[in-house]
């Protein structure tokens, strides 16, 4: 293990300051503060229902936090409007927990959708990009199928392909490997790592997969439902070996509490 932690010099592409979220009177989390740096694979951990998907929705500007500031690629969602917001949206990609493919379009058309909306590439180019993205997630032979005709794991992968359509700088993935077999899931981990290392794409990944967290995660935060906020932050391997927090320990050892 490395000795002294070297302060990270890379710029922060996502920065969250004291964010809180309430639905009605129920607080999901509060005082969440962290930075994600360029090129890093950042993992959001936590038990079911602790607010991971909610946090992700705040990060991608889908809803405003009840309190606190969220900045993505130097843009503050709350202050952006119109074209500026659209431009920022083309620089991020999102994969939804449920896939969220449009049911009336084939997988290829789903991937082409953002390309069509945001570039002037001709149809042949769009089709080629869609093939490449679908091929990368192992769906090369399902491009012409409708979302209703493919399995749950395939929906996930198609969602990732669509999120990558515009070569975004940050990819937000909500449980990418849930519902995938270990081989496909490991392939996905490799893809994420190669994209991060080679193209400098930043990843913000929500996942429960212990192996995946340890394999790809550069840094992580852990949310907790009872604590209504963050209970740990750092390198997942270190947290596994060194954390004193009972929930964190239980999580990494797969123990019931």
């Amino acid at each position: 293990m490395a000795g002294e932690p070297v302060p990270d010099q890379r710029e922060a592409v996502v920065s969250v300051k004291e964010a809180a979220m309430r639905y009605g009177h129920r607080t999901v989390f509060k005082d969440v503060t962290f930075d994600v740096r360029r090129g890093e694979i950042f993992v959001i951990l936590g038990g079911s229902g602790c607010g991971k998907s909610t946090l992700l929705k705040l990060l991608i500007g889908l809803m405003p936090p009840s309190a606190g500031d969220i900045t993505v690629l130097d843009g503050d969602w709350a202050k952006l409007q119109g074209d500026a917001k659209r431009r920022l949206l083309t620089r991020i990609g999102v994969m939804w927990q449920s896939g969220a493919l449009l049911g009336s379009l084939t997988l290829a058309e789903n991937v082409e959708l953002p390309i069509e909306a945001h570039t002037r590439l001709p149809a042949a180019a769009r089709a080629l990009v869609a093939s490449a993205k679908l091929g990368l997630v192992g769906l090369g032979d399902a491009a012409e199928r409708l979302p209703a005709e493919i399995s749950g794991g395939m929906v996930k992968r198609a969602g990732i392909a669509r999120a990558m359509a515009l070569d975004p700088e940050i990819l937000f993935l909500d449980e990418p490997s849930a519902g995938l077999d270990p081989i496909t899931s490991a392939g996905l981990d490799l893809l994420i790592m190669s994209l991060a290392r080679e193209t400098g794409t930043t990843f913000v990944v929500v996942t429960h997969e212990l192996q995946s967290i340890l394999a790809i995660g550069d840094r992580c935060i852990m949310l907790d439902k009872d604590a209504q906020g963050m209970i740990a932050e750092g390198d997942p391997k270190k947290l596994r070996d060194e954390s004193e927090h009972p929930t964190v320990r239980a999580f990494f050892r797969r123990e019931a509490m």
Partner: peptide, 8 residues
């Protein structure tokens, strides 16, 4: 190319 290559 790898992505496109796997496409039927």
């Amino acid at each position: 190319r790898k992505g496109v290559g796997t496409v039927k």
